[in-house]
Amino acid sequence: MAQAVAGTPTLLGTRLLRRSVDSITKHYPPIHEPNLNYLYLFNHDAEKLALLLTDLPALEELTIGLHRDRSTPAVAQSMSQLPFTMCRLSVIVPCFDLQNYHFGSVWTHLTYVEIGLVLEPASVLQVLQLCHDLSSLTVHTALMRVQTLEPLTHPKIQFLQLRPSRSLSSTLTDLTSLSRLFNALSLPDLRVFGANRDHSDGLTWPHGGLKALFARSNCPLERLVLDGEVGMRDEQRAEYVALIPSLEVVP
């Protein structure tokens, strides 16, 4: 039986890092590890997640990566039984949908969340609503719907990163949805904002909406990272710095 080491993955966690759920459930019975604090699961079969996410009372960090469509219901069912010790969660599935599935109360104590692929901007707002203590959020987006969004203020988030998908999103819809998302948010404790686009399409990143978000939030932003094909002219860089003189803009 693997022994937990404070602050590091257990031996069992290390084994799981290198195996799919299929191979784990073939060679291991359901996990009953009272001291397991880290778990990484990567597989094409979401239905076996429930076998692995039972009786893990000390679990603090969980990473799930699935590639099969329609995996959200199985993920939601599995996550609904996670303990209140959870503080870090990463879930990357073909369609991350909070609108139609109940994920339980696991969100309550999370401080770090990474999710994707998010197809609806409302899902980003819902994560922020559920995670009252959240300080870091990374979102892999493929925003295919332009939605009307209600304003939302999150008082604790300090790090926000957006990573639009190259392969799935309609880029015009994606950027329009991002602009509406920026217009809906107020993040008064935001310290770092990052965005990355790995493809060029001639369309303009919604700098106006992002600057309005920073101004409306009156946040102590320290670092702005706009990588890849986001695109930022010298005058746009100057406008960000004029808004927050101490801001470090990268690149």
Rank of each mutant, 00 (worst) to 15 (best):
Q147Y: 02
V5W: 09
I244L: 14
V106L: 15
S200V: 01
L226G: 06
P251A: 07
L125Q: 08
P155G: 11
L39A: 12
H32C: 13
L160I: 02
A50N: 11
I157Y: 01
S78E: 04
N35T: 09
V21N: 03
V93A: 04
L51M: 12
V75L: 07
L175T: 00
L178N: 01
E229G: 03
S80F: 07
L175I: 02
S179L: 04
P83R: 08
L39M: 13
L168W: 15
S169K: 11
V225Y: 00
H132P: 01
F182S: 11
L172D: 14
P121Q: 09
V146H: 10
R163E: 04
C131Y: 01
V241H: 11
S200Q: 10
D227Q: 11
R145W: 13
F96T: 01
R19Y: 09
T54A: 12
S217Y: 00
A212Y: 07
E229Q: 13
K26H: 12
H154K: 03
L49Y: 14
R223H: 12
A238C: 05
L128K: 11
V192I: 12
P251D: 09
V118G: 07
L178C: 02
T10A: 14
L185V: 12
S90N: 10
G65V: 01
K48I: 02
L17C: 01
L187N: 13
G208E: 08
S105I: 03
F159D: 07
S136C: 05
H140Q: 14
A184F: 04
H44V: 01
V113Y: 13
A212E: 14
F84M: 14
M79F: 09
S200Y: 10
V106R: 07
E114T: 05
L190Y: 01
L16P: 00
E222N: 05
D97A: 06
Q161G: 02
W107V: 03
K211H: 08
L226T: 00
L52Y: 10
Y112C: 10
E235R: 09
L221C: 07
L125Y: 05
S167F: 15
R233C: 08
L125F: 04
L149M: 09
T14D: 05
V192S: 08
S136F: 10
L36T: 13
S78K: 08
V75R: 04
P121D: 08
N35G: 06
G194D: 13
R216P: 06
V21T: 02
C131V: 13
G194I: 00
F103A: 08
E229A: 06
